[in-house]
Amino acid sequence: MSFFGNTINSLENSLDYASMKNSTIANNISNADTPNYKAKNVNFKNVLNKTLEGDFSPTQTNERHISFGSEEAQPYTITTNRSTTYNHNGNNVDIDKEMTELAKNQIYYQALVDRMNGKFNSLQTVIRGGR
C-alpha cells in the first residue's frame, strides 16, 4: 500500500533528472575552454513526446520472452550538439546559456525537494495523530 500513490516515485524520477541535468551542465561549464568539446544536454520532453505519441501496450505472450516491465528505462536522454561552433577552438559551450540553465535547474531541484519534504511532513503529522 502506498500512502502517496505515485507521487514519491514521480518526485524521485524528477530529482534524478534534475541531478543528471546539473551534472551535465557542470561538465559543460568545466569544459568551456576545452578544444573541440561539444556541449551536452539532457532531454526529457523528447522522450515524453515519443511516449505520448505512440499507442504502445506490449504483451508478453510467453514466459521466456523478455518482460517489458522489468527494466526501468531512463525518462531522459543525453544528447550532444555537434552542429554549432562558438569558439575558434571548435568548442560550442555558451557559458551564459549554461549559467542560466544551471540557475533554472537549481530552482527546479529546490522546488522538488520542498515538495518531497511536504509529503513527508504530512506523513509525520498523520503518525503523530495530527499534532
Rank of each mutant, 00 (worst) to 15 (best):
48 L>S: 05
117 N>G: 06
78 I>Y: 03
34 T>Q: 11
19 S>R: 14
117 N>C: 00
72 E>A: 07
106 Q>I: 02
67 S>C: 04
94 D>T: 03
72 E>C: 02
87 N>P: 00
50 K>D: 00
115 R>K: 10
100 T>V: 10
79 T>R: 10
92 N>E: 05
15 L>F: 06
20 M>P: 05
102 L>F: 05
127 I>V: 14
99 M>H: 09
108 Y>Q: 11
1 M>G: 14
88 H>A: 07
4 F>L: 05
87 N>W: 03
73 A>T: 15
101 E>M: 11
47 V>G: 00
74 Q>L: 04
41 N>M: 03
41 N>W: 08
23 S>W: 09
49 N>Y: 15
26 A>M: 15
53 E>F: 08
28 N>Y: 09
66 I>F: 14
6 N>S: 09
63 E>R: 13
106 Q>R: 15
129 G>F: 05
86 Y>V: 04
120 F>W: 11
29 I>L: 11
73 A>W: 14
106 Q>P: 02
3 F>W: 12
87 N>I: 00
103 A>I: 14
98 E>M: 07
53 E>K: 12
78 I>L: 03
88 H>F: 10
78 I>R: 04
120 F>A: 03
1 M>S: 12
89 N>E: 13
23 S>Q: 14
67 S>H: 12
64 R>E: 09
12 E>Q: 15
80 T>W: 05
83 S>G: 13
125 T>N: 05
102 L>A: 07
120 F>P: 02
95 I>F: 14
59 T>P: 00
99 M>I: 09
61 T>W: 08
39 A>S: 12
40 K>F: 00
28 N>D: 06
25 I>D: 00
106 Q>L: 08
83 S>Y: 14
95 I>K: 13
